[in-house]
Amino acid sequence: MAKRIEATNVSAYYGGFKAIENITLTVEPKTVTALIGPSGCGKSTFLRSINRMHEVLPGARVEGNLTIDNQDIYDRDVDVTAVRRMIGMVFQRPNPFPTMSIFENVVAGLRLNGVKKKSILEEAAERALRSANLWDEVKDRLGKPGAGLSGGQQQRLCIARTIAVEPQVVLMDEPCSALDPISTLAIEDLMFQLKDQFTIVIVTHNMQQAARVSDRTAFFSIEKTGDPGRLIEYDNTQKIFSNPSVKKTEDYITGRFG
């Protein structure tokens, strides 16, 4: 249920603009890896390269090698939709489908996979909502619109929707940046539980959050605007936050830069 991600010399482009350059790192299964760095340093771009969401934008492309348990996900013969089913994604802003009920939102991915049987869908929805710590709050109103929930609940609904299809990896792109501290805490607790089952990669601007939730931390940075983002340092979270080996990392985490 959890897989190793290996990136080798990954570069990503938006048309002619190179957003990240030669990123090489390995994400171990069943860990939480945090990507930190100043705005525009390409951490979200790298995250979106992992499940091939980067190429959704017109003119965007990725170079280099990205494997999940030694399977090249950019191989010509690989079905893009299969990659995205294996690697789920939670976005910065909660984005439940506005026209769907809470239940329909959770099972949307299963329906896309062709699951039709009501009993299977109901079981999967309950399991996903329980995993997302949302079941008790919504079990009596599964037929109500998902967009009627609070921001924090919506984000947990989106997490439930992502894990309902039982992916191997869950990517989170600043999942708490639109949430209040209490909802943020709920999602951080959730990450702790989820890493028993999934490999989690999270982009965050909040360094305390990175320090709290992650096992490994990757620090990205850019020289100046217009330059591609590079991986500066990648190590155990404790090492990065207590005794980083690169000066730039230290400057960033102590707030002297970025």
Binding site: V56, G88, F97
Partner: peptide, 27 residues
């Protein structure tokens, strides 16, 4: 249609047509 909804569908592994059916047409 909000891009966020279209991306949500794509990230769940929807093809282009499935994304339209899941996100665009209901919206």
């Amino acid at each position: 249609t909000p891009t966020a909804n279209e991306e949500a569908a794509l990230a769940l592994g929807a093809t282009r047509w499935e994304m339209i059916r899941t996100a665009v047409l209901p919206y």
